[in-house]
């Protein structure tokens, strides 16, 4: 095995779980293929990675470019995305307080969120339209700065911030609906002391 290949393996291996997790949230069943393509492309351009500590962000950028290029021919541009009915003033915090689904809880809002396992959160996110899910995942799940996300998605930052806001509201609504549909609240209420 060549030293370049060995070094590449050592550099990318620690990042594979997060890279695969990101791909799962962005492209679902195609995640393995996309990560595989990402590794091949990254190896071809390994000389462009001058700072090994920046490997995570470098791999993420390559992955995002692959996802964006693949989606470009299929998806509509931001201007063509239909305006959906999103209640932009929706507040899950107020919804929980008003509905009081866990009447014996002293920490109602925290207990509501503790109903959700990580796979539950993934399930809620995966049901969102991609133009809301992708910014949410990149900014709030993976901590990518909004300017970098706007550049990667090839949209103005103002458009991104608007999609993020609407996406958060959709996510909040979807959490409530998911909890109701999957009896999460009843299970939590039964577990309370």
């Amino acid at each position: 095995m060549t030293s370049t290949k060995t070094e590449f393996r050592e550099v990318v291996r620690p990042h594979l779980p997060r890279l695969y997790g990101l791909a799962c949230r962005l492209v679902g069943d195609r995640a393995e293929d996309v990560v595989q393509d990402c590794l091949v492309k990254a190896f071809r351009n390994f000389d462009q990675l001058h700072d090994r500590d920046a490997a995570g962000g470098w791999l993420r950028t390559i992955l995002l470019n692959l996802v964006r290029d693949a989606a470009r021919s299929q998806e509509r541009s931001a201007d063509e995305i239909p305006v959906e009915q999103v209640d932009e003033s929706y507040s899950l915090y107020r919804k929980i307080a008003d509905e009081d689904p866990l009447p014996y809880s002293d920490t109602l809002h925290l207990d509501f969120l503790s109903c959700f396992s990580i796979p539950d959160v993934w399930a809620v996110l995966d049901e969102l339209p991609s133009h809301y899910r992708t910014p949410l995942v990149l900014v709030h799940m993976y901590g990518v700065p909004t300017a970098e996300v706007a550049q990667a998605l090839d949209i103005p930052q103002g458009t991104l911030l608007s999609q993020l806001h609407r996406g958060r509201k959709r996510f909040e609504q979807a959490l409530w609906e998911y909890a109701e549909q999957n009896d999460l609240l009843r299970e939590t209420e039964e577990a309370l002391p």
Partner: peptide, 14 residues
């Protein structure tokens, strides 16, 4: 707390 919930969901085992 919601941001924490999302950030925690980034961790995945292959």
């Amino acid at each position: 707390e919601l941001r924490g919930l999302l950030a925690a969901a980034a961790d995945i085992e292959l």
